[in-house]
């Protein structure tokens, strides 16, 4: 089976944790990478393999405090890949998390939910006041 895919987050790129054994699938942090295609390429490659033979239930978490417009398209591409899971007869749910008061992340989530075809839940978590940009 596929190895976990782990990337630490940086000032400009999100952290990635994909681990099918643990059932953890998460993209979190900030995505303002200048070369989104290059950054997201290995992520798609891992997911392309995964969606062909996924776990019976996949909960995929986005916790993006901020993403630029070129990353928006990449986030959408990830979601469209996840739509493949349904074709295998397995279940997939997207959880979109945003910090309390962060209307922008909330709105971005609602917009992506609108254009996605997945079971998509938007969750608020309490603000820790300090924003670490």
């Amino acid at each position: 089976m596929s190895e976990p895919f782990i990337l630490e987050k940086s000032k400009t790129s999100p952290g990635i944790e994909f681990d099918r054994d643990k059932g953890v699938f998460k993209i979190g942090g900030r995505s303002i990478v200048e070369d989104p295609n290059g950054f997201y390429m290995p992520i798609y490659e891992w997911l392309e393999t995964y969606v062909k033979a996924p776990n019976p239930y996949t909960e995929f978490v986005f916790d993006l405090e901020y993403f630029n417009s070129s990353s928006a398209r990449q986030v959408m591409k990830v979601i469209m890949l996840l739509e493949e899971i349904e074709k295998t007869g397995n279940k997939i749910k997207v959880i979109w998390m945003y910090e309390e008061g962060d209307e922008m992340s909330q709105e971005r989530g609602q917009e992506i939910k609108l254009v996605s075809k997945l079971d998509f839940e938007i969750q608020e978590y309490p603000s820790d006041d300090e924003i670490d940009f």
């Binding site: 901020y66 630029n68 910090e99 008061g101 962060d102 209307e103 922008m104 992340s105 603000s127 924003i131 940009f133």
Partner: peptide
């Protein structure tokens, strides 16, 4: 926060 995010964006 909303305004900060917007400006940042």
């Amino acid at each position: 926060l909303k305004m900060q995010k917007k400006i940042y964006h």
